[in-house]
Write a protein that binds this DNA or RNA. Structure first.
Lengths: 120, 120
DNA sequence: GCTAAATATGAACATATGATCATATATTCA
DNA sequence: TGAATATATGATCATATGTTCATATTTAGC
């Protein structure tokens, strides 16, 4: 049998106590995945701008696209993501669909984020 | 001259007033990009788990990798991202490099995020 | 019912991203 | 100085992501 590199522990500085403690205190996989999920949705300039715009006032798809210089299809696709992340809600009025922020968590997150970006 | 579809305004529902107002109230491009930048960094399960672990206690690269069942290279690469986003800081002690959270914005963001995920 | 308008969706493509492997760079210690 | 250890970095590759074009769906008005 050939012993490959991978079979030999190459790292000697491991502190088992710390590792065990860390593992015990960690948030659940589900929570981590959930967190990463929202942040991923927020991690795109187009979507940030869309949410920014919607935080000012409710807008229909068409106005949203025009205000941000985006094409309708792109906006629609991104709105779907935002919807499934429950970041925006919508109401239909005839052919027109008006979108707005689903709650104010987004604003809070933005404020926190800006504080960090601006070196708070 | 051929008139292509793109040359004709296909959308009629645009509300110029709303658009102007939205544009005026929008955050700067730089701020939007900055926001998207941090959230992008936070938008990955591996990095969320790493930050989670570091929020519990300072850890060296090696322990961090072991605690999360990741290989050293992956952890190192991600730490670089976290460093350049100023989310973690480090101190060297001989060959060992200890990482920890750079500030507590991260915790605040995580709390806000979790509230959203858990349907707050 | 037909047409036009507003929005949504599917397919295709180019780019971005994360993991892995191999290797380079410290740093300690003999 | 040289071997061993801890970390960092570069290259590569598979996959994810965002945009665009084309088209489908829904609704209003004739």
């Amino acid at each position: 049998m050939v012993i490959k590199n991978q079979d030999i522990c190459q790292v000697k500085c491991i502190n088992p106590g710390k590792i065990a403690r860390t593992r015990r205190a960690m948030a659940s996989e589900a929570d981590c995945a959930g967190l990463a999920g929202i942040f991923k949705v927020l991690g795109d300039v187009t979507r940030v701008r869309m949410l920014q715009a919607l935080s000012i006032q409710e807008l229909c798809v068409c106005d949203l696209a025009a205000a941000l210089d985006l094409n309708q299809s792109a906006v629609s696709h991104q709105l779907r993501l935002l919807r499934s992340a429950r970041l925006v809600k919508y109401r239909k009025d005839g052919k027109v669909v008006y979108y707005s922020l689903d709650d104010d968590h987004v604003k809070t997150l933005f404020d926190q984020g800006l504080e960090h970006v601006q070196g708070g």
